[in-house]
Nucleic acid binder design. Structure first.
Lengths: 232, 232
DNA sequence: ACCTGAACACCGTTCAAGT
DNA sequence: ACCTGAACACCGTTCAAGT
């Protein structure tokens, strides 16, 4: 291995270290406590070095969000591997959304700030690209699942898959942002209502989605939600 | 009138001035540009005077949000005065949500920050109370409309009105936060799907909600959305 | 070539001093 | 009693100097 490769490896390790630190601060002390200075201090590097990795504070949040989106994608793929009906598959994807948002609540809120043009323009170009791609990948899993449901006739095809995916994301997203004392139950229940509205077979009255939901929930929690960061 | 009353009046006028200024900055330059210093400067007062009205920066955002909630409430009451079916009434309320969120996009995003405990604890107690009450008032309009629909038999009563209101808010809220090239149309369409799922009569296939939506939209835009602030 | 940390600008918040 | 603005702490960002 050349020297450059070792350098590159060290650089990536350091970047991961900074992200681990940033996420820990965010989780334990909130967004206001997440500062470039603190990340540098805890990591025992200078501020300049942190800026060598992230162009600004929002770049860090963006990178954290990308890591979470990748986890979300992996969890959804995990669900989609199972032998489930099309409607169970989409419910499983929604369940992943909820579990992720319950697990990383502060992060999901911070990500919204990236929509502000005044902020998103500060992101490094590479990070913007990567973020858009990650979101697209997760959304594709939804859209593909919906398309398949229409193909096999479980779901009327008078509405475009992208539109149905949008409605589902909006609903799940909105519920976790507003908050609910029993968020998972509420999500299962109200999302099923929406799917009934779309005419997605079998309708709630003809199937027991409660059981699928619980089982998938246990499996996902047991297997697929490690802490995002390694110890440092 | 006593001197105290005049003082009080002047104080309220100044508070309104600060809010007008804050909203203008937020709208034109974004949340990052909204600083206590700038509000003071533009208003030609000292920073200390601004702090005499608002305990912190978030207090201002909270106050702005309360003003918007009051406008939202007035618009919803405007819709609810009309002779509409129960389902049209709830659609009208949702339309108000969308119009408000399109009109004050940055504000609606900022309000989310108030959910962070690290931030909400900084708000003055009076402001916290007022904010909670304003939200409650708007939500009550939804809940009451839903209850009435169940009473007259337009809507099955196997789900609590509060839960249905939650689902509706989540969906509309989520859609405007995620964004959509045709937000109003998407909201009308997908919300109707959700209402169909709840079994809210008459179902989409049996009624023309498009026409109601357009008409109400025109009326609301013509009558009820003044700029929130007076010129200063 | 890479890393440092001093330096600058800016902002939130407080409070002693002035009117 | 009310208002001011200097003062302090803190943070984002840059960059000349060091290794």
């Amino acid at each position: 291995m050349s020297s450059l490769t070792r350098k590159e490896r060290e650089r990536q390790q350091r970047e991961a270290l900074f992200l681990d630190i940033a996420y820990d601060i965010l989780r334990n002390e909130g967004i206001k406590a997440l500062t470039m200075e603190k990340v540098a201090q805890v990591g025992e590097y200078s501020k300049g070095t942190v800026y060598g990795h992230f162009s600004c504070k929002e770049d860090i949040i963006s990178a954290l969000s990308i890591r979470t989106l990748m986890l979300q994608k992996a969890m959804m793929q995990n669900v989609l591997e199972g032998q489930w009906s099309s409607r169970e598959r989409i419910l499983g994807c929604a369940l992943v959304y909820v579990l992720i948002q319950v697990k990383y609540p502060r992060l999901h809120y911070c990500v919204l700030s990236l929509n502000d043009p005044q902020i998103s323009t500060k992101l490094s170009f590479a990070m913007q690209e990567l973020y858009a791609e990650s979101e697209e990948q997760v959304n594709s899993l939804l859209v593909d699942t919906i398309s398949e449901a229409q193909l096999v006739g479980d779901l009327p095809n008078d509405t475009a898959p992208e539109e149905i995916a949008y409605a589902i994301r909006a609903m799940v997203f909105g519920m976790s942002l507003i908050g609910h004392p029993s968020l998972e139950t509420a999500t299962r229940s109200h999302l099923n209502t929406l799917l009934d509205g779309f005419g997605w077979q079998p309708l709630t009255r003809d199937a027991d989605y409660h059981h699928f939901w619980q089982q998938t929930r246990e499996e996902l929690l047991a297997v697929s939600i490690p802490e995002i960061h390694s110890a440092y």
